[in-house]
Amino acid sequence: MIEEKRNVLERFKSSGRFRGEGILAFALILPSLLVVGWIILYPILRTFWMSFFDIESPLPGSYPFVGLHNYFAAFKSSDFRMVTEHSLYFTFVSTFFELTLGILIALLLNSPLKFRGFWRSIVVIPWALPTIVNGALWKWIYNGNYGVLNELLHVFHLGGQGHNWLGSPFEALNMVIIADIWKNTSLVVFFILAGLQTIPSDLYEAAKVDGSTPIKSFWNITIPLLVPSIMVVVILRTIDAFKVFDIIYIMTKGGPASGTQTISFYTYQQTFSNEYFGYGSALAYLIVIFTLVIAWFYIKLLRQGTLEGVS
């Protein structure tokens, strides 16, 4: 039977019809290929090429080839080290809390709640808000003079009057992270909720019959089976958090004392404000490399976890 099918396929492939269909298929995807190539591949390759030149203008011209100088300059720069540290801190802290809170909220929304559909739909609101709105919103919340946070703390007699939440570098970074967590936890909730709904209830029933407690079921059934969803969302959030730009631009503009400058914000400033296009291109590639390394690390970690779960 299989042999017969193979013969039919071979005859079809050698016929002119197959070649004709192949050409048609290629012709159909050609417009998309051209568009994707032009707007995605070309800039990627062009940026890589630019990173080897000392380009200080957006206009075409003859610019000196500097080899890997832009990459070495980044590693030698104390500012680059500082912004990389800020980005790594931002990435790990925000992703950790988004994942933890996201799993807890998803578990809650997966349980038989009253008005479950309503709760599930309002969880989307923070994520649906544009980051620019979210940034402005939290900037007002944190304002030392008229911010809601100080007012709330005052009402509950917890102090905070006149405190400037964005006034010192490390505190400001953490406050921006909270704003980011508030917005992006929703995304984690969706992924985890979708993952939870694929776990068959029989498994929990069987575990219950075997005397498993809910906590044991959570660690031994839920978490191992959620690993694929967790892996996807963690990678997505890590990549997004590492290249965070807009919320910083709106809330702090990198200040005070450059305490909230992240690698993307720094890259933006170097490229467009200072017009160091060659250096900026090298920085953009370094961001890609860092992101790939972090993603690879996560995938490796979670794959190990998956295998342990299976064993």
Partner: peptide, 21 residues
């Protein structure tokens, strides 16, 4: 010609002095 780049580094340092760093 490099006013912006110069201004950014000065802004960062002035900010550090203002917050007492």
């Amino acid at each position: 010609t490099k006013y912006n780049a110069m201004s950014l580094v000065i802004q960062a340092e002035v900010s550090k002095a203002l917050i007492g760093q």
